[in-house]
């Protein structure tokens, strides 16, 4: 008999729907991670210009001096800060800290993901402050 495959695939991890903030952080963590990998590849490619001599290097550097690259660089640093803060949060959670202990459920049940929320909020605030400060450093000061 024919079946209809209802697996959500990529839409299933990108779209956070009605779930909590942590569900959205999951998506952002992956996107920022992929962004960092992409940057690393471009970085290796660009710095490889050095082996073609000083002139080639100067030329690439001049090309990279435009505002688009400055914005890209800022996005990179913002992504890295978020990825680091969220990674720190994941390490704490995965060591079983701040998520509560097994217990008899009392309804309405408060799940672990709600119990750890203060930790998540604190780390995300830290990330936000760092992203704003680096923005000031980048564009204003």
């Amino acid at each position: 008999m024919r079946r209809y495959n209802n697996r959500l695939w990529v839409k299933g991890w990108i779209y956070g729907g009605n779930y909590g903030i942590e569900r959205y952080l999951y998506t952002l963590h992956r996107i920022s991670g992929l962004g960092l990998i992409l940057y690393l590849l471009m970085h290796i490619y660009v710095t490889a210009a050095r082996i073609y001599g000083a002139a080639a290097w100067e030329q690439t550097m001049a090309f990279l001096y435009g505002p688009a690259f400055k914005l890209g660089e800022y996005l990179l640093i913002a992504g890295a800060i978020f990825h680091a803060a969220n990674g720190l949060w994941l390490i704490i959670i995965e060591l079983g800290m701040c998520i509560g202990k097994p217990q008899r459920q009392e309804y309405p049940y408060v799940p672990s993901v709600k119990k750890q929320r203060p930790l998540m909020v604190a780390l995300m605030l830290l990330a936000a402050v760092l992203i704003i400060v680096s923005g000031l450093d980048f564009f204003i000061i």
Binding site: Y19, G20, E22, R23, L25, Y26, H29, R30, L90, I93, E94, L95, G96, I99, G100, P102, Q105, Y107, Y109, P111, S112, V113
Partner: peptide, 29 residues
């Protein structure tokens, strides 16, 4: 598992799979 927490939010019996998985990771470490 990267602690999206969706399973724990929707589980109708308060089983909290997200909690159990993190505690199992702790055991693994």
């Amino acid at each position: 598992c990267h602690m999206a927490g969706a399973c724990a939010e929707v589980c109708p019996k308060g089983v909290d799979p997200a909690l159990a998985i993190q505690l199992m990771k702790r055991k693994a470490i």
